[in-house]
Simulated scan of single mutants.
Amino acid sequence: MTCKLSVNLNKIALIRNARGRDYPSVESFARKALAAGAHGVTIHPRPDQRHARYDDIAALREVTRAFPGTELNVEGYPDETFLSQVLAAKPDQCTLVPDEPGQLTSDHGWDLTRHLEQVRTVVARLRSAGIRTSIFMDPDLAQIALAPATGADRIELYTEAYAHSPSADTLAPYAVAARKAVELGLAVNAGHDLNLDNLAEFVAGVPQVVEVSIGHALTVEALEFGFDATIRRYVAILGPR
C-alpha cells in the first residue's frame, strides 16, 4: 500500500505572519509542494490564527483544484467558527483535533468516552457536506474501538511517542492500533514529529497508514536541503503520488 504525503504549511504561515504581509506566500509553497510530488497540503488554523488563517482554507482549496488528484486537509478543533469555514470551503478532508484554544501544539487524541456525541454530531455535519472526516487519536485500543461510532472515515494516529524515541518498542503500539482500526473499517492516517530520519521505519512497521501529515520537521529540514528537494526526499520514502 502506498502512503501519501500531505505537507503541513503552518510553519510557512507562521513566517508569513511575522512580517504582516503575504511573504512567504502559503499558496506559493503549496504549489511547490504539489509540483514536487506531494499528494496534498494540510493547514491547522487555530483560534488566534497565529500561523494558518481561516482565509487560507479557501485559497488552498483553489490551489489543490489546479493539481488534479491532490487534496486539501484542514485540521482543527471543531468550534462553530472553524466548522463554518470548513463547510464553506469544502476541503477534501477535515481532521478533528481536541486542542485547547491556546495550545502550543497538538499533544493528545480524542477521549471518546467523554466526547463521543460531540464528535459524532460534527462528523455528521461534515459528511453531509461531502467532506471526508478523520479524528486525531492516540494508539489506544479502547479508544479506537469507539471510533466507528463517530461515523468518521479515518483516524489519524498521534505519533509523537514514536517520533521522540524511535524503536521497536515505541513502534509496536502503532502497528497494533492501525491493524485494529482497519479491522473496524477505518482508514489510517498518521502525523506529529515524523521526519526524514524516522519515517521509513514507521511506514514499514505500520503499513496500514495511507497518509502522513508532516510540517514542522519538513520545514526545518528544508532549511538544510531546500524545500523542493526535501519534498522529493519524503516522496522517495513513501512512493510517488
Rank of each mutant, 00 (worst) to 15 (best):
S167W: 09
E160W: 09
R127T: 15
L9T: 10
H164E: 10
P47V: 13
L171N: 11
Y174I: 01
S167Q: 10
L104V: 03
E224T: 14
I15M: 15
T95P: 00
L34R: 13
K180N: 03
E75Q: 08
Q49S: 05
C94M: 07
V212P: 15
Y158A: 14
N189E: 12
F29P: 15
A161C: 10
S6F: 01
A222N: 10
T70N: 04
N10Y: 05
V235N: 14
V235Y: 15
L34G: 13
L194H: 01
Y23H: 08
D92A: 08
P101G: 05
I57D: 04
F225L: 04
E201K: 05
P98Y: 11
S6Y: 01
E183Y: 03
A36L: 09
D169T: 03
P166A: 07
E71Q: 07
Y234G: 08
D55G: 05
G185C: 02
I144G: 14
S28H: 03
Q49Y: 07
G226R: 09
D99C: 05
K4I: 00
V176M: 07
V212C: 13
V122Y: 11
G226D: 06
L112R: 02
R31W: 01
N189S: 10
S25C: 06
S6L: 03
V212Q: 14
D138E: 10
P24S: 07
L83I: 15
P173Y: 08
R31Q: 12
R31C: 12
R16I: 06
H164R: 11
G226P: 15
N17H: 03
R53S: 15
A161K: 14
R53P: 13
F29T: 04
C3M: 08
T95M: 13
V74G: 01
S106G: 10
D197G: 14
I43Y: 06
G37W: 04
T170L: 14
A88I: 06
R241D: 00
I43C: 02
W110V: 01
V41Y: 03
F67T: 05
I144K: 12
F82D: 09
L5N: 08
F67A: 12
E80T: 14
Y54Q: 02
Y23M: 07
Q208D: 12
N73A: 04
V97E: 03
D92L: 03
L72R: 06
P166W: 12
T95V: 10
A129V: 12
Q103P: 07
A33Y: 01
L186C: 06
A89Y: 05
I15H: 13
A52D: 05
T81L: 06
L218R: 02
A236I: 00
I12N: 11
S28M: 07
A200N: 10
T150H: 08
